[in-house]
Structure formats: structure tokens, C-alpha cells
Design a binder for these strands. Structure first.
Length: 211
DNA sequence: CACCAGGAATGTA
DNA sequence: TACATTCATGGT
């Protein structure tokens, strides 16, 4: 017989379902991380947590100026404070994130994109990480790697998303893992100025093939 | 000191 | 449609 841990591949361990609070924190992180490194976001999240203001209801109730000061280290703090307030107000008006995000996928995505401050990457991050919906999150790393490999253009979000979703099994944990691997690869090799020495896909890439 | 980091909105041609 | 500019802090 073939020994298996379950029907899920062992390299994609199942996770306990997200709590309502965790879903909210994921959304906050998705907005704060826009065009900023995660380290700067983390310190902002810590400050929000210390102020007991990490939940959507708390954020909605928080004075704008106070919110701005708490998230200052994440950069673009005035814009992001406004984005958080708008997101919190909208989401709270639609019930729990779990229920809201489980509706028709295209409708929810369009609804998110209609919010000021929510673009494609943020919308898809909310859907995948907070809603556990099967949407591939394309980011700057994804575009850089795929662009260099010739998978799609360096700036075409929708093409990149279709390419990846078309080439991978439609699976939330797999999208999650694959994206994490892209991030790791971008940091190790596929940097702004590529480090091709030792790159595992060097021969598949323009940068690698021409020495 | 220059540059970059897991974007998005707005204005212009 | 395709760019350019603006927003802003912290690390290297």
C-alpha cells in the first residue's frame, strides 16, 4: 500500500482555520506593506497591537491623527491611515470577513478594487490570505522573476496572474507556498541587480544563459 | 549619501 | 493604453 498522511500532499501541511481576528490582522498587514519592506510594517503592527488598535472595529474608532502616528514607520502613513479607515468601515458594514469574502470571487475582487487604496495586489492578498480564496497574488517579485524568465511582461499583473493560475493546480495552500518560494528566490538570487551565480533556474533565464 | 523596499492614485499625451 | 509623478519611512 502507499503510505500517505492524508489526501493533502505532505509538503503542504494543513492549517487550522484562521480566527476572525487573524483575518483582520492580515488585511491590515496587506495595506501597510504596500511598497514597503515587511520589517517596517512589523514595527507598525506591534505599535497598533500595543495600543489595542489592531482590530477593524478599533481602527474604525481610532482618531485619524492617532492612527497616523501609530503606523508612521510603515511609510506613506497619511495615505495608509486613510486606507485603513476606509477598509475597516467598509468591511465592518459587510459582516465578518469570513462570510463577506466567501461570496462570488469576481464580485468580491471588484468590490475590493473599488475601495480607494486597494489595488490588484492588495485585493488579491486579502482574498487569498484573509479569505482563503484561490487567487494568485502577483507582486513586484513575481513580476521580476516571471519577466526575466520570459513568462510574461515585467509590468502586466493580469497576464502574470492568468499565467500562474493557468499553470498551477487551483489550490489555496499551493498558491500560498508557491508565492513564498518566489519571494525567497527573489531575495536570494533575483534581486534588482540579479545574482545569477548559483541560481537554480539560471539556464532557463536570459540573465543566466548569457553568462 | 544614493538607492531600494512584496503599491496605488492621479494626471498627462 | 502607457508612462511620469507623488506619497514617506527605515535599512544597506
Amino acid at each position: 500500500m502507499t503510505p500517505r498522511a492524508g489526501k493533502r500532499p505532505v509538503y503542504l501541511p494543513g492549517r487550522r482555520e484562521l480566527s476572525a481576528r487573524q483575518r483582520e490582522e492580515v488585511c491590515v498587514g496587506a495595506i501597510l506593506t504596500q511598497n514597503t519592506n515587511w520589517g517596517n510594517v512589523e514595527s507598525a503592527l506591534v505599535r497598533l497591537n500595543e495600543a489595542r488598535a489592531l482590530g477593524l472595529k478599533e481602527l474604525r474608532a481610532l482618531p485619524l491623527r492617532r492612527l497616523e502616528s501609530l503606523i508612521r514607520t510603515s511609510g506613506y502613513f497619511r495615505q495608509k491611515a486613510k486606507k485603513l479607515k476606509l477598509f475597516a468601515r467598509h468591511a465592518l458594514g459587510r459582516g465578518s470577513l469570513k462570510e463577506w469574502l466567501s461570496g462570488d470571487l469576481r464580485e468580491r475582487r471588484e468590490e475590493l478594487l473599488g475601495l480607494w487604496g486597494v489595488g490588484p495586489e492588495t485585493a488579491d492578498s486579502v482574498l487569498l490570505y484573509a479569505g482563503e480564496r484561490p487567487v494568485f497574488v502577483v507582486d513586484a517579485y513575481t513580476l521580476r522573476i516571471g519577466g526575466r524568465l520570459g513568462w510574461f511582461g515585467q509590468t502586466d499583473y493580469d497576464r502574470a496572474q492568468r499565467f500562474l493560475q493557468g499553470g498551477l493546480p487551483r489550490s489555496v495552500p499551493l498558491y500560498n507556498e508557491f508565492h513564498a518560494l518566489l519571494v525567497a528566490h527573489a531575495k536570494r538570487h533575483c534581486r534588482t541587480t540579479p545574482v545569477c551565480a548559483g541560481c537554480p533556474v539560471r539556464r532557463l533565464c536570459r540573465h543566466g544563459s548569457k553568462k
